[in-house]
């Protein structure tokens, strides 16, 4: 699992590359928490290179989304691959998150 971070107009963009599972989710949670602890309130999570997610990965995303909401911030996802999309639909996570195909469309959402 590779986690890349960048900033764009006050939005923290976090790209996950690889697998978000029972083994890698602890690393991802630390990374998300450090971004939130640094005061960021707008998070775009780019999943276009995430090939696999399990319930352990969903758990981390839900924890992050709840933290962002408590801070009055905004969170969005983009680029769900086929298997990841199916997991989101079955678990009802498609309805919890704002999800965009392209990163540019997601960035627009933060401007609104």
């Amino acid at each position: 699992m590779e986690i890349t971070q960048q900033q764009s107009d006050g939005i923290a963009i976090i790209a996950l590359d690889g697998r978000l599972d029972a083994v890698t989710s602890a690393d991802a949670e630390r990374e998300f928490n450090s971004v939130l602890d640094s005061g960021r309130e707008k998070l775009l999570i780019d999943l276009s290179h995430l090939e696999y997610i399990s319930s352990a990965g969903l758990r981390i995303l839900l924890v992050v989304a709840k933290r962002v909401q408590q801070k009055g911030g905004k969170i969005a996802l983009n680029g769900l691959t086929t298997g990841v999309r199916e997991v989101f639909e079955i678990s009802g996570f498609s309805a919890i998150f704002k999800i965009f195909d392209r990163r540019d469309d997601a960035l627009e959402f933060f401007k609104g």
């Binding site: 399990s54 319930s55 969903l58 839900l62 924890v63 989304a65 079955i90 678990s91 009802g92």
Partner: peptide, 15 residues
């Protein structure tokens, strides 16, 4: 449920 209602965890078996 929406973000507020969703408990953490409990979807592994369901998936």
């Amino acid at each position: 449920g929406g973000l507020d209602e969703r408990p953490i965890g409990g979807v592994g078996i369901h998936l």
